[in-house]
Amino acid sequence: MSATILDLARGDFRTSRAADELNSRFQSLLGLPHRYGPARLALGRSLGLASAPVLELNTLGLGRQIKGEQLFGQGVELATWLTLLLEHAGVADVSRKDFQNLVGAHWHRGIYLLWDDWKSSGGEFDAFVARLVQQANRQRAKAAQAAS
């Protein structure tokens, strides 16, 4: 990875404008005080899919930026997110720009997936959370199955 962890922590990240608007909507629906709350859920949701997200951000207009240290947290949280994103991408050497695009694409894909989850849960907080937890635990069951 050519960009250092500090570069990334201090760098700015954005997704498409539409995804950012959806992010704000989730922020209020879930009662989260910061923009990074839904954004992290979206990143996690997108990382749960094996395929790489594809998005040409420039053609869709950009949303508001968020600092890396807010989006990913600090210390071990930051290092963990970077580790998962790089492992998912399967690349060793990524520039700051490429990494920003990768994050923007995951964020975009993830927030739309979350929106589908929200609709499937009938717009109910409890059902939505239960669905996400089920999603996280299903991934674990699949992994265990594959391992056996």
Binding site: Y36, L41, L43, G48, A50, T80, V133, Q139, K142, A143
Partner: peptide, 30 residues
Amino acid sequence: TQDELRRLLSGELALALSGSALRKRAIERI
């Protein structure tokens, strides 16, 4: 309680959504 709820939603649950297959691969590579 609300702090704890927020912490769980944007912390552990968000990371857990990435799935254990990816996490296992990451741990092995580390």
